[in-house]
Nucleic acid binder design. Structure first.
Lengths: 333, 333
DNA sequence: CTGTTAGCGCTTTCAC
DNA sequence: GTGAAAGCGCTAACAG
């Protein structure tokens, strides 16, 4: 390094001074720090990482950035990780499996010390993530978890959240409750669907298969299916949607058809999108504790990093919270 | 490297094969590729970067992730950069100057090849960014630009956008138009304020200083100031807000006070937040071309990277678009 | 307290 | 076609 040369001393001394190690002459240390400052010296993280075989960087793999859920979790992850002295390498795959595989490769090439991931809705093959495990790099899943990888994961109690949402509809007098469900490859979708089913069963409401529609989470499909539901000979009087964007789109369809919400159709969403309290009527929804999710994901990763590995990976399931607003007001017949 | 050892050949040969260089025996190449595949071999990007003094990574510094504007631009940046063979290191500073300085240091330590930045609203000292320039690392600003650094930047025509928004209010019959302006350290704020002023002047509407309030972009302040404005002896009949969150907050205050929008107070925002078309009444706003912003930011950076440096850094100003919705409907007296 | 040496994994001359 | 050697900037023993 140039600063060693400039002072005519060895680079190990400089290295020691810069790292604030003990056993170094105060005079030389000061001289070194001065020159370093003068030169705008920035230690080369790459060389450091290469030498230490440790990058102090955690990769985060998420399906999308333009949404409310993931950025919120991300901010929390970043904050916790920063506190623990780690940097974050964020990769966003735009819900594309191919991009996710690419991103995984990039993170691997950059030798991240650990990985926090929520995979795309297309992901069925997890080979690109298993490589990390094989190489001994700790992995944590959140929200969307992979069931055939034995790693810690943090999820939200989708089942319970859905159950409470539907129970709330029933208690407010709704009987024909439709459900727009996500792709059944996602455990999220399945759990919410189960919550829906069990609530109906518990209240002795017959399950009408016509009222359950599984789709790919794109808004154009929502439009089609909501219209389909409303055109049914016996249309539903309530809708439990997979997520808020879906619920909001449904609301728009209702608006354009003159269907009154909640009078003709009550609607409840999932994820507490920032728009949900603002629209008219304000949307009843199930909120996920985004910042807790981030916190626990980091905690579980750090546990592995510090060698506190348990034989059975710890998983945490966080409670969801039903937020009751106007779109599900009590029914008067 | 282990793959060289396993085949009993030199590592330079392996390196050549892996990089697909010419002049290599097809047999050995195949053997090498086979072993590489078998070993899940991933080239070490760190070692590569260290050797080449080039990381193929671009740092992106943004003030926040939980919003609509920045993620949108980010996705566009990421896409363009990916196409050009670059990775992205995203740092979010949460509108905190200190975090921004930290992040800049991290990016520097990671030897990014270039930097795309939109600074925090607190940033007044740009020393942490000038270091990049001094080290010969190309920098591009977007949206929030630094006026005392000579670098390319891409912005939106805030002045024109504001002008059109206010003109639209005037043409719809509003006369006492208030403006909630951002901190005047941000060129954005100043340009929007100027657009506002010029529109009033052009239509011979006297400027009432009481109707212009500059604040720090926090929502609690919005609440206070909107109430203040509405309590004025001569309250405004319209509001031009610095951004959509502000406008939406204003709308909430109106709702809670029984002030009808747009009847008693017309409102126009800025940035076309996803919630803005959904709220009641839907919000008139000025939209920024987020994906063009990202595209041009990357283009300007790539220009520098490929040595196409002009003596005068190119800057691009993108047009904003006024989206007319219900919150500014024509006034009937 | 400080210098020397080797090595992290890869690229890049320069030889053979 | 392939190998040997040096170097990117830093850390980590091991000597003094």
């Amino acid at each position: 390094m140039d600063i060693a040369r400039q002072l005519g001393i060895s680079k190990s001394t400089v290295s020691r001074a810069l790292r604030g190690q003990t056993d170094i002459h105060p005079g030389t240390r000061q001289a070194i720090l001065d020159v370093a400052h003068e030169l705008d010296y920035q230690p080369n993280q790459l060389a450091y990482s290469l030498a230490k075989s440790k990058t102090n960087t955690i990769g985060v793999l998420i399906p999308e950035l333009v949404s409310s859920f993931f950025p919120k979790v991300l901010v929390s992850i970043q904050q916790s990780l920063r506190q623990a002295g780690y940097n974050v390498l964020i990769c966003q795959s735009d819900e594309s499996y191919e991009t996710e595989v690419d991103n995984a490769r990039i993170l691997l090439a950059n030798r991240v010390d650990g990985l926090i991931v929520s995979h795309t809705k297309e992901t069925r093959n997890f080979e690109h993530l298993k490589i990390f495990q094989r190489k001994g790099i700790p992995v944590v899943f959140f929200n969307r978890v992979c069931e055939d990888m034995v790693v810690p994961n943090v999820t939200v109690d989708d089942y319970r959240g859905a159950f409470e949402a539907v129970e709330h509809l029933i208690q407010n007098g709704y009987q024909r409750i439709a459900h727009l469900s996500g792709p059944d490859t996602l455990p999220n979708s399945r759990n919410r669907l189960n919550g829906y089913r069990h609530a109906l069963r518990q209240y002795n409401i017959p399950l009408d298969p016509d009222l359950i529609i599984s789709y790919d989470l794109t808004l154009t499909k929502v439009n089609i299916y909501i219209n389909h539901l409303l055109n049914l000979p016996q249309p539903p009087d309530a809708l439990f949607a997979m997520n808020d964007p879906t619920a909001i789109e449904a609301l728009k369809v209702c608006r354009s058809r003159g269907v009154r919400v909640p009078h003709d159709l009550a609607i409840v969403g999932f994820s507490n999108d920032p728009a949900s309290p603002l629209i008219e009527p304000s949307l009843t929804t199930v909120a996920q504790p985004t910042s807790d999710i981030g916190y626990h994901a980091v905690r579980l990763l750090l546990n592995q990093l510090t060698g506190q590995v348990e034989s059975i990976p710890e998983s945490v399931i966080l409670p969801a919270e039903l937020l009751i607003r106007s779109s599900t007001a009590k029914r008067f017949n």
